[in-house]
Nucleic acid binder design. Sequence first.
DNA 1: GTTATACGCAAGCTGTCACTTGCCTGTCAA
DNA 2: TTGACAGGCAAGTGACAGCTTGCGTATAAC
Lengths: 100, 100
Amino acid sequence: MLVDADPELFKALGDATRRTILDELTDKDGQTLFEICGRLTMKHGLGSSRQAISQHLAVLEQAGLVRTRREGRYKFHHIDTGPLRSIVERWPPTPGEPNP
Amino acid sequence: MLVDADPELFKALGDATRRTILDELTDKDGQTLFEICGRLTMKHGLGSSRQAISQHLAVLEQAGLVRTRREGRYKFHHIDTGPLRSIVERWPPTPGEPNP
DNA sequence: GTTATACGCAAGCTGTCACTTGCCTGTCAA
DNA sequence: TTGACAGGCAAGTGACAGCTTGCGTATAAC
């Protein structure tokens, strides 16, 4: 009886706002919560509240996709793309597919 | 104003049962609906109904992760891992990470 | 000390999603 | 043709997830 692996990872990637946050951290790594909020509103036009983004970041952190670093009253968020590799490793390329 | 890419792909991967179906198709590709139902019950112990699995397969097909082939009254399901690569390509490896 | 800033916690609301239920269509065998 | 088998469609239900709201805490500026 096998079990499902990394449910939190896929749950984290399941939300569009969280994926946009990862896009934003890819563009500029190490942002604070307010910085992310501002850029999401400006560049992506989604008016999410601070608490909403904070909860999203918590989910991303629990999935291992985001690591945080405290510095005084600031909390910087860094992307970690490592867990993403477990996805392609779980379902290997289909035989017959091109493998560039 | 950028938009989110491949929402259906991530939505499809967001459910544990659908991921188990992909595991099952990885183990044995080209199964029918009833075959998948049986194996999910036997090997994974989840008692999902036929309609539930059918709906899951529809979601997986819409995400491009499963391709179907009709043959008489049978419908065979084949996994397609191609879309998975867009995930790792979207968020490239963080500089400083080991790249085996 | 006072105020502002950056963030955390927890309860409540709402919409979405997975699942069920019931019935229908198409295919093959007897 | 009749029955069994493989699958499809659609409405209804319940639970979870995302979001809001309100208050609380810690750090830094004045």
